[in-house]
């Protein structure tokens, strides 16, 4: 891990609703994610973890404060700029969100095909390689319905990493998995991320995976209440 910042958040405030129903969701958030780091964002439900994830992931407009992603200021960025930046990120969702009509290989191809101009055979090769890295070389042509929960989430990891993103944002990726599968998925994410210099921001309630984190951020009531550096490998 080097000290090159991928994400810099300064004085971030965010509200939901309007008028009297307007509610403060995030208050004065400051944080920096450096290249290759594996950061876990914790906190009770409603503390603002997901809001941070969606703001850093260019899925919501920044209302107040500054979020710089790979050197680009997100406050005031156009929808087109946000979409272009999202193409350089990897997303992993709680429910894996694989496309039911596409095979494992085709789902992973979607992770790299978003970048225009990539030849088909190269996209196919990269996707097959990514599935090999997550141990699913023998499941390339399987539809999601034929895969176990852990295998689906590994396909989702491959899809997130296939385009060599600078930042992977993972939302409760282990919530629906048993202990062994959860451990496998997080180990994969950390190992492959470290190998490629990918920064990971993982939101979780799952205490089983905290020992993998380089850093643990804790949110409560929209405020960042603790930042804990760990000795994880």
């Amino acid at each position: 891990m080097d000290s090159d910042p991928i994400v810099e958040v300064r004085g971030l405030n965010h509200w939901f609703g309007t008028g009297e129903a307007r509610k403060l969701a995030l208050s004065n958030i400051n944080m920096t994610l450096t290249r290759g780091g594996f950061t876990v964002l914790m906190g009770p439900s409603g503390s603002g973890k997901t809001t941070v994830l969606t703001l850093v992931g260019c899925l919501r407009a920044v209302q107040e404060g500054s979020v710089r992603l790979m050197g680009h200021e997100l406050n005031g960025a156009s929808a087109k700029e946000l979409t272009a930046l999202r193409q350089r990120l990897g997303f992993i969702f709680q429910a894996h969100n694989l496309h039911e009509s596409l095979t494992a290989l085709q789902n992973v191809i979607m992770g790299v095909q978003v970048r225009p101009g990539l030849p088909d055979d190269l996209a196919r090769h990269a996707a097959a390689r990514a599935l090999g890295l997550v141990g699913l070389s023998d499941r390339l042509d399987y539809l999601p319905a034929k895969l176990s929960g852990g295998q689906k989430q590994r396909v989702a990891v491959a899809r997130a990493l296939v385009g060599n993103p600078a930042l992977v944002l993972a939302d409760e990726p282990t919530a629906a998995l048993d202990k062994d599968s959860a451990s496998d998925v997080v180990d994969l994410l950390k190992r492959l991320g470290a190998r490629r210099g990918t920064t990971t921001l993982l939101v979780t309630h799952d205490n089983r995976i905290l020992d993998r984190a380089d850093r643990i951020l804790t949110l409560e009531d929209g405020r960042l209440v603790s930042v804990k550096e760990t000795a994880a490998e």
Binding site: L59, A84, F93, N97, M110, V114
Partner: peptide
């Protein structure tokens, strides 16, 4: 039926 998958593709940066 595929709104969730389309939302996923939107998140990934598809235009």
């Amino acid at each position: 039926d595929h709104l969730r998958e389309y939302a996923t593709f939107k998140a990934m940066g598809y235009r």
